[in-house]
Design a binder for these strands. Structure first.
Length: 923
RNA sequence: GCCGAAGUGGCGGAAUUGGUAGACGCGCACGACUCAAAAUCGUGUUCCUUCGGGAGUGUGGGUUCGAUUCCCACCUUCGGUACCA
């Protein structure tokens, strides 16, 4: 074979790997394991674009590297197959989402295989497969049957809780439960009806039904996802959207807040990722304070982290969703309050949080008493207070809080300064901590001591208590959708939910005539005919969210085909937690928290043996599109090259990047792509029509999507793999530009040229390598090995280029060098490496070769060329033997002609000699 | 708004983490081969310059013998913001 024929080689080896199940991972107790995981994709209808495989290639390099290093590697792939897009397509076309999903998965798999990724496909999972979601439902059942004991700090069986209730009521139970759970004794429990008992238990279960706000679109008759809502209107159709309370299943993730936050320090994740999760969980220390409403038998409890500023409270604010608003609104204020609430409640939380420039609120007519000062303070309602955080009640201190200050300024409410130094400031919130002033018994204390003192005082007086608050909320687990896992629950006539028994799982998705809600506004499952448990009880009609299936898939991979359990103890004991997890930052606070939560729960229950699922996490950046833009003169059927557009009035049009090369437009291709312009004129510069460009999201809409299949066909999978890595650091986002790929293509041809000459003769020899050749090889081994450990793949590719260029220069065709180079290269470019490895006479796949050992001897240097700086500017370089001491170096440097010239016969103030680094002469 | 990340030649990026800024590659220019083109190979390529040198890593300050790297303030872009996945 004379030429490097990538298509032939790549097909040959992909077939070989598949037929021989080379990547099959089985438990081998005597071998160290390594689990490399990719975030599995949602198989969209558009197929993979060139941005998707970035992380997959990186993790594949690590997987192959670890195999060569002697590890038993688990490297699986699957599909997050439930989701909105397939359902949306089903609504439009009537096609069952299972069918489109299956087609999309097939396409994805073909594409992934074409890249030469070393997955063990026998371990594939699909979340929409009943064999898989049987266990998702099973985990739901386990959660339903559990409560969180804050004394043992773990999840425990609900039956144990019932035993406690039967013995002593709930007075001594310290549990994660609903805020409004009543205290009861044994008698009260034992005399309660079964229905009452069931209701009480729901307050404790780790999954439970509750009312939660959703985006309800009456016109579409459906609930919308946040990103389907734009400015209060549905993205499709533009119909008004209102926020409506609906019965939803919730997950009591808040039970795990403290462990989720605390465990982060043990994980090998980036600090920024840990910080994002920490902030999301948002643990804060503070206290609850009770404010009595004047002339009403109501006490409002607020949470605050700044009780030290209590003497600066000038008003009180309720969230517009607060349940007591009706009672707290005086008759004469009612009309205005109702109007305000109507408006405020339909604004999204994000909108309410981010619009800080405009404030809005309304006075309720009621007053409360500040428990410390006994002052009468007006009670307002404002949408900057969210019902979901704290208690939905805020004590407003305009002198110490930015939002309170803006609000008070706008509505002319008083501002009472309580921190020294703020007295004469226009904006007192510039100073938030310091010595307290105008603050009764805490005057003179610093803020920190004052916090303590006020809490102690409140506890003693009985109107407050210290409290740890979390920003994280229980997660809504219901979706009013069809294409998701059915919740394995039915309801008896008393409205009490019951689990479908384990041996009857999975509860499969029924078929429906249409994927829309029912006329009465029930979710699509309400359309299923005669769909009743035991022919008489209603099933739960909502389905599980996208994150249900993805919260435990990493466990299923270990034992993907087990029909008796979700994962066997043997498998999970051996494979344990994921050693390297690669995926996007966009999952920072969703998937990555929910997965940790479920994993922790399964650990508590003793089903698995590691508390944290992902030891090391790396976030890959996104590959953005690089769009090409052409400019058409307004009112003329004429396009101008980018350099000629000047200040003319032009219309910008996106053109398909696939008919543009190096920003030069293929005009004929353009005319057949856009027949409307087949008669247009083109004004060229230097004989070419040059396009402008923009970096934006890779999307059909901008005609900037590059399909990996096309790249592979033209350049090969090895080339695609190396080029994707060569683009830059894995964590950074960067635009895709196919032009640069030629550099890697040249590299692969040069590599091939070390084995075959231009006539197609195999030129590899058995000669002994020279010192220089060993040096080139071992420098590469050292660099690449270190780079892979640091996941710095772009610099590895550079190093390979440097290495091959150097070997070409040395005319090195020696087997001893080349075969080691192939093993080092094989994780990056596995196909060409396999082929050349075979040509060198090896019968076993390069996958099983062991990684060459780096030998320091070969790269040892005995001299170093010091850059010589004068006043921090590099002026010359001088070589010194490494055993020369700094004194000798200094003396010789000062004798150097160039240095003398710069010294200009002045005596240097100081000479800094940093061994093996630099010499700096300071004048 | 809040939380997180990033900003270095015409472009993607490198810099062993405080020590030669621009490795490697693309593009571009010139040269070789060719009747010619493509491909290939070679040389050059941060900017300014009076050819001595000067400036330079988003902007403005600071620390240091020395800053892309550390500190302070700001600007821009990207991700998340609880029902997209």
């Amino acid at each position: 074979m004379a030429d490097y024929n990538h298509s032939k080689i790549e097909q040959k080896w992909q077939l070989y790997w598949e037929e021989n199940k080379v990547f099959k991972a089985e438990i081998e107790p005597d071998k160290p394991k390594f689990y490399v995981l990719d975030m599995f994709p949602y198989p969209s209808g558009a197929g993979l674009h060139v941005g998707h495989p970035l992380g997959y290639i990186a993790s594949d390099i690590v997987s192959r590297f670890k195999r060569n290093k002697g590890f038993n590697v688990l490297h699986p792939m699957g599909f997050d197959a439930f989701g909105l897009p397939a359902e949306q397509y089903a609504i439009q076309t009537g096609q069952h989402p299972a069918i489109t999903t299956e087609q999309n998965i097939k396409r994805y798999k073909d594409q992934l295989k074409g890249i030469g990724l070393s997955y063990d496909w026998d371990k594939e999972v699909q979340t929409c497969d009943p064999k898989y979601y049987k266990w998702t439902q099973w985990i739901f059942s386990q959660l339903f049957n559990s409560w969180y004991n804050n004394l043992s700090n773990k999840a425990e069986p609900i039956d144990d809780l019932i035993v406690i209730f039967e013995k002593e009521g709930n007075q001594n139970v310290v549990a994660a439960c609903d805020e409004d759970t009543a205290v009861f004794d044994v008698n009260q429990w034992n005399t309660s009806s079964d229905q009452e008992k069931a209701k009480i238990l729901l307050n404790y279960r780790l999954t439970y039904p509750a009312d939660a706000l959703v985006n309800w679109c009456p016109e579409l008759g459906t609930v919308l996802a946040n990103d389907e809502v734009k400015d209060g209107y549905s993205e499709r159709g533009g119909y008004p959207v209102e926020r409506k309370k609906m019965r939803q299943w919730m997950m009591r993730i808040t039970a795990y807040s403290d462990r989720l936050a605390g465990n982060l320090e043990k994980l090998n994740w980036s600090e920024s990722m840990k910080e994002m999760q920490t902030n999301w969980i948002g643990k804060s220390y503070g206290c609850e304070l009770d404010f009595k409403v004047i002339d009403k038998d109501i006490t409002l409890t607020c949470f605050t982290t700044r009780p030290d500023t209590i003497f600066g409270v000038t008003y009180m604010v309720l969230a517009p969703e607060h349940e007591l608003i009706d009672e707290l609104t005086t008759p004469e204020r009612k009309e205005e309050v109702d109007a305000y609430i109507q408006k405020a409640i339909n604004r999204s939380e994000r909108e309410r949080m981010s619009e800080v420039k405009t404030v809005s609120g309304v006075f309720s007519g009621s007053y409360v008493t500040n428990p410390f000062t006994k002052e009468k303070v007006p009670l307002w309602i404002a949408d900057y207070v969210l019902a979901g955080y704290g208690t939905g009640v805020v004590m407003a201190v305009p002198s110490a809080d930015d939002r309170d200050f803006r609000f008070a300024t706008y509505y002319g409410l008083p501002v009472k300064r309580v921190i020294a130094g703020t007295e004469n400031l226009d904006d007192p919130t510039e100073i938030k901590h310091g010595k307290m002033i105008n603050s009764g018994f805490i005057t003179g204390m610093n803020s920190k001591d004052a916090v303590k003192a006020t809490i102690e005082h409140a506890e003693k007086e009985g109107f407050g208590k210290a409290k740890i608050n979390y920003r994280i909320r229980d997660a809504v687990f219901s979706r009013q959708r069809y294409w998701g896992e059915p919740v394995p629950v039915y309801f008896t006539d008393d409205g009490i939910p019951h689990l479908i028994p384990e041996n009857e799982l999975p509860l499969e998705l029924p078929s429906v005539d249409e994927y829309l809600p029912t006329e009465t506004g029930e979710p699509p499952l309400g359309r299923a005919k005669d769909w009743l448990y035991k022919g008489k009880y209603n099933y739960e009609l909502t389905t599980m969210p996208g994150w249900a299936g993805s919260s435990w898939y990493f466990l299923r991979y270990m034992d993907a085909n087990n029909e008796d359990t979700f994962v066997s103890p043997e498998a999970v004991k051996y494979w344990n937690s994921v050693d390297l997890y690669i995926g996007g930052t966009e999952h920072a606070t969703g998937h990555l928290l929910y997965s940790r939560f479920w994993n922790m729960f399964l650990f508590d229950k003793g089903f698995i043996f590691h508390e944290e699922p992902f030891q090391k996490l790396v976030n890959q950046g996104m590959i953005q599109g690089r769009s090409n833009i052409i400019y058409k003169l307004k009112d003329e059927n004429k396009f101008v090259s980018v350099g000629l557009k000047g200040d003319d009035d032009v219309i910008e049009l996106h053109v398909d990047v696939n008919i543009v090369n190096n920003d030069i437009l293929d005009i004929d291709a353009f005319k057949s792509w856009m027949p409307d312009y087949k008669d247009a004129e083109f004004e060229l510069e230097n004989g070419k029509f040059k396009c402008g460009f923009a970096v934006e999201k890779m999307s059909k809409r901008w005609y900037n999507v590059v399909n990996p299949d096309d790249v592979i066909e033209k350049y090969g999978a090895d080339n695609l793999r190396m080029y994707e890595m060569f683009l830059g650091p894995i964590e950074l986002s960067k635009p895709w530009n196919t032009h640069g790929i030629d550099g890697v293509a040249k590299f692969l041809r040069k590599l091939w040229g070390l084995f075959y000459n231009a006539n197609g003769d195999f030129v590899v020899t058995d000669e002994k390598p020279k010192a220089e050749e060993h040096k080139v090889l071992h420098k590469t081994i050292q660099k690449v090995e270190r780079d892979i450990e640091n996941l710095s793949f772009n610099t590895s590719v550079s190093e390979f280029m440097i290495c091959v260029n150097a070997l070409n220069q040395l005319k090195c065709h020696k087997k001893e060098i080349l075969e080691k180079l192939l093993v080092v290269l094989s994780p990056f470019a596995p196909h060409i490496s396999e082929e050349l490895w075979q040509k060198l006479g090896h019968e076993q796949s390069i996958i099983f070769a062991s990684y060459p050992k780096f030998n320091e001897e070969f790269i040892r240097e005995d001299e170093y060329e010091y850059p010589i700086m004068v006043n921090g500017k590099m002026r010359t370089k001088i070589k010194f033997s490494l055993d020369k001491n700094p004194k000798e170096i200094e003396a010789e440097v000062l004798e150097n002609e160039v240095v003398k010239k710069w010294l200009n016969s002045k005596t240097p103030k100081k000479v800094i000699v940093v061994p093996k680094k630099i010499v700096n002469v300071v004048v």
